[in-house]
């Protein structure tokens, strides 16, 4: 009985390891090769449209609402200490350091990540990837690579837009609605938010998240079982694994960046 469980555990671990190996292989093979800018640029541009521009709506709406909630909650808590002037820096720091990169990444995984997985999985199921190979085109370079690049580029941009919209939402609530003096809202914020320590670190986080989420999404699509059930399983895996990876990575990065402060 024990042996059975051990065997299953071993088997599962080995297959996870093998999957990680395959994933690393496709990451390497897609990105490392003689660059062909003339061919790749239009492909990457098109993917930036699908992955980035079409995600703007959910990013902006979510950012706005989260910023407004932060402003409201922050005010409610700080007013008891007489420190409601600090609402500006609270909203800004929370967004720039944590919420913008993390929440934007989670939303990105849900919207763009799952779409990527489904699209690539469908191309696999309808043998489009195989026919690309037969024609002599490497599907990793033509299909996977542009999507990877698009993900890396879009994620930090989306996170920054999220942060800005969130701060604006927070200012809407704090200044226009709750009556905090506009000058101190922004002045306090500018005093406490450091460009290099906070904004740049937030952007670095977003870049790492973009890498991880896009890599997972693309691999799940490429590696899935080419049936409709297989594709739906792969899409679910993308969202779950990406979300877990983002949250775990966030802890590691936060500890590295802000832990010593």
């Amino acid at each position: 009985m024990m042996l059975n469980m051990l065997q299953r555990l071993g088997h599962r671990s080995l297959s996870r390891l093998a999957a990680l190996g395959r994933a690393s292989q496709i990451l390497f093979q897609s990105l490392v090769a003689r660059p062909q800018p003339l061919v790749m640029l239009p492909l990457v541009l098109k993917q930036i449209w699908f992955v980035g521009v079409l995600s703007l709506v959910i990013i902006v709406v979510s950012g706005g609402f989260i910023g407004m909630v932060l402003g409201l909650q922050g005010y409610t808590i700080l007013v008891d200490y007489g420190s409601e002037q600090a609402v500006g820096q609270m909203v800004a720091l929370s967004l720039v350091r944590e919420l913008a990169p993390v929440v934007a990444a989670l939303l990105f995984a849900g919207r763009a990540g799952s779409a990527l997985t489904a699209e690539i999985g469908l191309m696999k199921a309808t043998e489009q990837l195989a026919s690309l190979e037969m024609i002599g085109v490497d599907p990793l370079r033509r299909i996977i690579a542009p999507r990877l690049w698009a993900g890396f580029i879009c994620m930090p941009l989306l996170a920054m837009i999220f942060a800005v919209v969130g701060i604006w939402g927070g200012s809407l609530v704090a200044v226009d609605w709750l009556g905090i003096y506009e000058g101190s809202f922004w002045a306090n914020m500018q005093q406490s938010v450091s460009f290099y320590d906070d904004v740049v670190n937030g952007i670095i986080k977003a870049v790492c998240f973009g890498l991880v989420v896009t890599w997972i999404a693309v691999f799940q699509g490429y590696d899935c079982i080419p049936t409709s059930e297989g594709i739906s399983q792969a899409t679910t895996r993308t969202v779950v694994y990406s979300s877990l990876a983002v949250l775990g990575l966030d802890f590691v990065l936060t500890a590295l960046m802000f832990g010593e402060l």
């Binding site: 703007l56 720039v96 941009l157 800005v164 914020m189 460009f195």
Partner: peptide
């Protein structure tokens, strides 16, 4: 989209931090 992202970065740099 790229312009919006760049603008966001500038706002973050100047107005926020």
């Amino acid at each position: 989209f790229m312009l919006a992202g760049l603008a966001a970065l500038i706002v973050l740099a100047l107005n926020v931090s």
